[in-house]
Design a protein around this nucleic acid. Structure first.
Lengths: 341, 341
DNA sequence: ATTAGCACTCTATCAAAGCGAGTGCTAACA
DNA sequence: TGTTAGCACTCGCTTTGATAGAGTGCTAAT
């Protein structure tokens, strides 16, 4: 059996209607709602076919139909209106110099308020970026501060405890040594051989060099378990199908233990090569606890190849068109903020 | 009418029973539960009195009684067993050098898992601490990095954009200028007059000084909206009286917008002078959205006078004794971690 | 002062009944 | 052959009424 034009139209009508109301859709509703001018009986026959094909299903006999995951999938792939007016969403323009996390939190929040869904945003990860600057300074008689700056102005600090005091001149020398050898290198290029060479040159101060390198390594490591911000988790209470205790609890947990969203971020980044915006319907999601939701994600890229992801989490009957539109809109704005520098 | 011994015992029995079951408690239950050897009829009379006095209330006629906020208050103030065995709770010992936020998250989580309530912990705030060190370094042709270190090794970075390049010597001079005048001062002592004087001394570079002072100011400001970590928000779903959509949503929101908990932190810090552990029952809480919960908080103090707070949020019928015990236990452990350095 | 006893109240639970929405099928129709 | 009117049927939701049970307040006896 094939999906002819008419079946598609009916499926579309069912889904549209269900997205709006959240209630199973009956044949009579379709018969009036569409411009097909077909009686409910005809619709019924077609709907029986659609059910057999797996695009819609009945919660129980003598109820209307609701879309299945397969139905939603067809809808977002083929049937969805690609362009639609989207409410203009103003991201408050933040100075680029402002702390990145402020901006991200802000974006997540604006998005949550605008869409009425839960949102997440992962901070751009800086893999492959170059070391820009290292500075050691004494802050106390037996402590020095190591500041590591990576391209993109990511700054990491570490306090190092000294065994024996260092005089100012030595610190200066170490600074020069470190900067001349390391700046401009990517974090990957700083390998053991290079470290050994540096230590050798540092002579009796090789321990300090080792400690600094550990600080650099930690800067990398910390960046690896990436930061994720969320907002609007309470929006899920707006959708009865998600707000029963069991499911709500699961979703809230995931939002609290943000690291559980990592797989979502990874998957989005991988797939973002092929397609800008990614839609996960129900069980398609890489995060188990969201199998009753749909998740729409996009990868964004700031200058200098820093990539992060934005995600919107809602019920399966989310307004995909609006969400996709809003997300595209947001991308543009992020772009413009970071281009106009 | 006064609360004699017997009334107190009955009130205690009602509350104990209600804490366990969460169901209204009837006179017959009390009659058997206690060692008073009184008939249910007598209990009924006494309970009628207790209700008139406002310590207990009936959800509806012909239901048992439940404690009122006033009843709980009396209970925690007077009736509660002060000492009780508490499950030993191991806080994973983290190296002191480890990042503070790791430790805090860990503590919040352990506490949530152990108590089955929602928890929050605020990072210690460093008000009144002294400026230790300021360092300007050039990271780019027109950017300098300002690092501000406050006592307690709190470090803040800011990138400043220059209008005109600065030579190394000038940067060095500025460093000396700033450090000689500012280090050792508390953040409050750095007032406008002092800034003006510095600017004057900096001559043509007064703009830089101004920018650095802004950076310092921002370091303060950022520290002010203090960091709060939460865990176990989903635990509230374990208590039916809190997991209805409306209330749950409100609580979850508060946990997401952690800044809403600030007033709780403030209040705890203020009151911590008089009493170690603070209990807010229902409407007593400074955070409006938790009026249906009880909140138990404590202020902790790490070395160097850094104070933060820990809070446990649960239903009014929370196990106060256990929670208080657990909290005291935790305090001891935190102490020992930070004492043994 | 305490308590046994009783009438009363209120809720929760269950079954029966009716309603309404929706279906599938059949037969008639164009 | 595709469409549609009609009809019997199913199922869930809501209402209703009856019942049981828990608990109370009051009174009268101890």
């Amino acid at each position: 059996m094939q999906l002819d034009e008419r079946k598609l139209k009916i499926l579309q009508a069912v889904i549209r209607n269900y997205l709006e109301t959240g209630e199973p859709v009956g044949s009579r509703t379709i018969s009036k709602y569409t411009d097909l001018n077909l009686s409910s009986a005809t619709i019924r026959n077609e709907m029986a076919d659609l059910e057999e094909l797996g695009y819609i299903l009945q919660p129980h006999t003598s109820a209307g139909r609701i879309p299945s995951d397969k139905g939603y999938r067809l809808y977002v792939d083929e049937l969805m209106q690609k362009e639609r007016e989207v409410d203009e969403m103003k991201v408050m323009l933040l100075e680029k110099e402002e702390k990145m996390d402020q901006l991200l939190k802000q974006v997540a929040k604006v998005l949550a308020v605008n869409t009425n869904y839960a949102t997440m945003i992962s901070a751009p990860s800086y893999q492959g970026n170059k070391l820009k600057f290292i500075q050691l300074s004494r802050v106390d008689v037996n402590q020095i501060l190591a500041v590591v700056v990576v391209e993109g102005n990511i700054i990491k600090n570490n306090i190092l405890n000294l065994e024996a005091p260092l005089d100012d001149e030595t610190i200066l020398k170490l600074n020069i040594l470190l900067n001349t050898h390391l700046s401009g290198l990517t974090l990957e290029e700083i390998n053991l051989g290079m470290i050994a060479k540096l230590k050798q040159q540092a002579g009796i101060h090789s321990k300090i060099v080792g400690d600094v390198m550990d600080a650099v390594a930690e800067a990398i490591r910390e960046e690896e378990d990436l930061q994720i911000y969320t907002s609007g988790a309470n929006n899920i209470f707006k959708y009865p199908e998600l707000s029963n205790g069991e499911k709500a609890s699961e979703i809230i947990s995931t939002f609290e233990e943000k690291q559980l969203l990592t797989s979502l971020v990874q998957d989005t980044l991988e797939k973002s090569q092929e397609k800008g915006i990614q839609i996960y319907i129900g069980a398609e999601t890489p995060v188990q606890s969201m199998k009753d939701c749909s998740v729409v994600t996009a990868a964004y890229e700031l200058e200098e190849g820093m990539k992060g992801t934005i995600g919107i989490i809602g019920p399966k009957r989310m307004d995909y068109e609006k969400v996709v539109g809003t997300l595209q809109n947001l991308m543009k704005q992020l772009d413009s903020i970071y281009k106009k520098t």
